[in-house]
């Protein structure tokens, strides 16, 4: 089995001289296909920077990142766009649906950018909305949906392209407990059918759903625990 994520000695530095900030100081991480991983850490620990790099939204200062076997460091901006489109499904804390656009159109959006034809697009978007249990809301605009529903639409949009992994940044951060359970149930279902999920959270009960938990502190991974076998702290 191939690793989906293979990160070696990853460094990320912002600014120069006096104001230099080391957000990541040598991160090594391997995530295998089908894993459900939670990344935890206090704010300022570097977990968001790690997520941005893993999501190909930001490039590391040093170190290598292989996503699904592709060395991302070699790619230009256009190729990075394509990698984001084909390999990664994003779920954000604030849903980030395109406003004034129906749920179905939002889910179709990544397929439009992938150049998928209209009929095929419609079919796949409807299937993705069915998977998150919102097939009956496909015509609703984001402002006509509850927070939990919006997040599930965002999830449908994330998985509609069949990405190598779903990358979620505090996906339940803005939700009440009932909506949180709905959304996490969808993540569970996705993982059961073999989807790789990487999720940032600071809530223990959310992280508890994941099979593996990684703790980040001061730009380094300080703990990597698996529910089935503890590997102990890594430095």
């Amino acid at each position: 089995m191939n690793p989906v994520i293979e990160v070696t000695a990853l460094h990320k530095t912002y600014g120069t001289g006096e104001t230099e900030v080391h957000a990541l100081r040598g991160v090594d991480l391997t995530v295998w296909s089908g894993e459900y991983l939670a990344i935890m850490g206090a704010s300022g620990s570097g977990k968001s920077t790690l997520l941005n790099v893993l999501g190909c939204l930001d490039v590391p200062t040093r170190g290598t990142y292989k996503l699904d076997g592709i060395d991302v460091g070699d790619l230009n901006e256009r190729q990075l766009s394509l990698v984001r489109n084909r390999k990664i499904g994003f779920v954000f804390q604030s849903y980030n649906l395109v406003p004034r656009t129906s749920a179905l159109s939002n889910v179709e959006l990544p397929l439009i950018y992938a150049g998928v034809g209209r009929r095929e697009r419609r079919k796949r978007a409807v299937a993705a909305l069915e998977m998150v249990g919102l097939a009956d809301r496909s015509g609703h605009k984001p402002n006509q949906l509850s927070g939990g529903q919006q997040q599930r639409v965002a999830l449908a949009r994330a998985l509609v392209t069949g990405p190598a992994m779903v990358l979620a940044d505090e996906p339940t951060g803005n939700l009440d407990s009932e909506s949180t359970d709905e959304v996490l149930a969808v993540f569970d279902r996705l993982n059961r059918i073999g989807r790789t999920i990487v999720m940032i959270t600071h809530e223990d009960h959310v992280a508890g759903r994941a099979a593996r938990t990684v703790r980040v502190s001061d730009g380094q991974i300080v703990e990597d625990t698996s529910r089935w076998h503890r590997t102990g702290a890594l430095t």
């Binding site: 939204l57 394509l82 489109n85 994003f90 980030n96 649906l97 990544p110 950018y113």
Partner: peptide
């Protein structure tokens, strides 16, 4: 958003 989901 559009760029994150793959708009070039």
């Amino acid at each position: 958003i559009r760029k994150a989901i793959g708009a070039t």
